[in-house]
């Protein structure tokens, strides 16, 4: 097919949108909802990933001493910790220093002390691993040592976060697949109506020897255009509401990191628009295969 022939093809999708306006609107809305959820889901996963990565990169293990640990216990524990593989440094943190850190992070010394009564923190060691992967191993070894009350490290949170992420991912993918299928079906129903409305024209085109692609392109374009419009609507909603949502989250869940929109705007737009166009094209291939056989 000649590229210049697109001048004959381009007006057709618009004619069809006018002709099947209600059907087209339904298809566009379904597409918009599908892609909106895809977009929200995509941003959610990116944010969780960012948090997970941040925590995962932490290489600290806190080893808390038992309350009855003596000076000698403390020193032998330090030696034992230093002898573990993958340990970069071991630093003593007294219970007073520990409280200071806590206050520095959450503010308001009086409130914390009032809540806690007296300083409940034990003395501790902060063990730094050379590699994030060594953290779990170090923590497990430390737990078995004498006079150790508790061991804390970021990994536990990371594991929970990854579990949540997987869970969200599974449900999200499931919902997206279902929605995508319905969007594709709705588009294919719309295109089918166009095929039926243009049955006569298709027959004439075949009789006079139009090439297959000349016959197919209008339907393909119509599907892609519906997908594109749906994606535009979804994208507009995402772009408009993301910052507001993040503002709200930042005020309420301060200790998490958030991705700012301007860092992901290009990716998100590309993914959604491309997704819309691809789903639209898929939706038009189905009726074409069935009705436009050679």
């Amino acid at each position: 097919m000649k590229a210049s022939s697109f001048r004959y093809i381009f007006p057709e999708p618009f004619n069809s949108l006018k002709r099947n306006s209600w059907m087209s609107v339904a298809a566009i809305v379904t597409m918009a909802i599908t892609l909106l959820l895809c977009g929200v889901f995509w941003l959610l996963v990116m944010n969780i990933n960012a948090n997970a990565t941040m925590m995962e990169s932490q290489v600290e293990v806190k080893v808390f001493l038992a309350d009855d640990a003596t000076e000698a216990d403390s020193i032998s524990l330090k030696t034992n910790l230093e002898s573990l593989a993958g340990v970069a440094s071991v630093t003593f943190v007294s219970k007073e220093e520990g409280l200071d850190t806590l206050i520095a992070r959450f503010g308001d010394k009086d409130r914390i002390l009032a809540a806690l009564g007296s300083n409940p923190l034990p003395d501790s060691y902060t063990v730094t691993a050379t590699e994030p992967e060594d953290v779990v191993q170090i923590a497990e070894a430390a737990e078995t040592m004498d006079k150790v009350q508790a061991v804390r490290y970021g990994q536990g949170t990371v594991e929970n976060l990854f579990a949540t992420l997987n869970w969200i991912r599974t449900i999200g993918v499931g919902i997206m697949v279902l929605l995508s299928v319905s969007a594709v079906l709705l588009i294919s129903m719309t295109i089918r109506m166009t095929v039926i409305a243009r049955r006569e024209e298709i027959r004439v085109m075949k009789y006079v020897g139009a090439s297959n692609w000349f016959i197919r392109w209008p339907f393909l374009l119509e599907g892609m255009f519906i997908g594109f419009l749906g994606a535009l609507i979804a994208l507009a909603i995402v772009l408009f509401s993301y910052d507001k949502l993040i503002d709200y989250m930042v005020q309420n869940l301060i200790f998490l990191t958030y991705i700012s929109l301007k860092d992901v705007i290009f990716q998100t737009s590309a993914v959604m628009l491309f997704g819309g166009i691809v789903l639209g094209a898929l939706g038009s291939i189905i009726p074409m295969r069935r009705f436009l056989k050679a």
């Binding site: 006569e200 024209e201 027959r203 004439v204 075949k206 009789y207 006079v208 020897g209 139009a210 090439s211 297959n212 050679a294």
Partner: peptide, 21 residues
């Protein structure tokens, strides 16, 4: 497909029921 297209371009058809749009 290409040859079918060529054949059709070399052949005009007319029917009893006109088949106009």
């Amino acid at each position: 497909n290409v040859e079918v297209v060529r054949l059709r371009r070399n052949t005009g058809v007319v029917f009893q029921d006109f088949r106009l749009m």
